[in-house]
Computed example of a mutant assay.
Amino acid sequence: MSALSALPVTGLHVVSRGQAGASEPGAVRGKLPLMYGDPVSWLVTEAVSRALAAGADQILTARDDVGVILVSARCTLKTMREVRRSSATGRVSPMRFTGASPGSAGSLVCMVHRLTGPTLTLVNDPAVGLGVAATIARAWLVSKAAAYVVVTAHEVSAAGEDVAESVVVSDRQQERET
């Protein structure tokens, strides 16, 4: 079952979707070679990239009005553990320290795609957090804080594979005419 199936979409128009999965999330690497990002951050960025590509014409022209919400119980856990291990030696990489913040998983999406709308990371299991994410997305859309909101759920499948699923929503039917 899809993690995003728990997203209550009442009052939201689904514009596009994207998904990325990797048994080793470090295999997904982004476009910014000098930037450290937790492997899950890059996986989330790939899922969002696919969702944005599916609706790019209308979404990417509104970069300043695209909000991002990530729901993940694990977020940057791998990097947090690496920082903890390296702190025992008395030396911590500043880039990894910054990349360990749970919020960096959603922030990387904004940096890669130059999105400047509101952002939020909910450190929750998607089954619990997606209801909150939908409420916040609706509030951002109704208040005009965002014209579109990308909601991404990250979880680990029963097979142990990290999976990120993204959906772009708006509060109205978007014109699909070109």
Results as ranks from 00 to 15, higher is better:
residue 160 G to Q: 04
residue 38 D to V: 13
residue 148 Y to I: 00
residue 71 V to E: 02
residue 15 V to N: 04
residue 2 S to V: 05
residue 27 A to K: 15
residue 73 A to I: 03
residue 142 V to Y: 09
residue 29 R to W: 04
residue 143 S to E: 15
residue 70 L to W: 03
residue 53 A to I: 05
residue 98 T to C: 04
residue 69 I to L: 12
residue 17 R to T: 07
residue 62 A to P: 00
residue 18 G to T: 03
residue 16 S to W: 09
residue 35 M to Q: 14
residue 108 L to T: 00
residue 86 S to Y: 12
residue 70 L to Y: 02
residue 81 R to L: 06
residue 55 G to C: 06
residue 93 S to Y: 03
residue 112 V to R: 15
residue 158 A to I: 03
residue 157 S to V: 04
residue 13 H to T: 13
residue 31 K to F: 08
residue 177 E to R: 12
residue 11 G to V: 05
residue 132 V to C: 12
residue 22 A to E: 04
residue 82 E to Y: 06
residue 128 V to H: 13
residue 6 A to I: 01
residue 33 P to N: 03
residue 61 T to M: 06
residue 168 V to F: 08
residue 100 A to H: 08
residue 90 G to C: 11
residue 33 P to R: 15
residue 133 A to L: 05
residue 49 S to V: 00
residue 143 S to M: 10
residue 7 L to T: 09
residue 154 H to P: 06
residue 107 S to K: 00
residue 84 R to Y: 15
residue 67 G to R: 09
residue 89 T to F: 13
residue 162 D to G: 14
residue 160 G to H: 12
residue 178 T to A: 13
residue 21 G to C: 01
residue 132 V to R: 13
residue 89 T to E: 15
residue 161 E to W: 13
residue 39 P to Y: 05
residue 177 E to P: 01
residue 68 V to N: 02
residue 15 V to E: 10
residue 79 T to M: 03
residue 16 S to M: 11
residue 129 G to R: 00
residue 68 V to E: 01
residue 24 E to D: 13
residue 155 E to A: 13
residue 61 T to F: 13
residue 51 A to K: 04
residue 85 R to F: 03
residue 74 R to W: 11
residue 23 S to C: 01
residue 38 D to A: 15
residue 44 V to P: 03
residue 94 P to T: 07
residue 63 R to D: 07
residue 161 E to A: 08
residue 13 H to W: 07
residue 141 L to Y: 12
residue 75 C to G: 12
residue 114 R to P: 01
residue 6 A to C: 06
residue 176 R to K: 11
residue 98 T to Q: 04
residue 13 H to F: 14
residue 10 T to E: 15
residue 144 K to W: 07
residue 123 V to R: 11
residue 29 R to I: 06
residue 1 M to I: 02
residue 164 A to P: 14
residue 34 L to H: 13
residue 64 D to H: 12
residue 146 A to Y: 10
residue 132 V to G: 01
residue 26 G to N: 06
residue 157 S to T: 15
residue 137 A to H: 10
residue 28 V to H: 01
residue 77 L to Y: 09
residue 177 E to L: 11
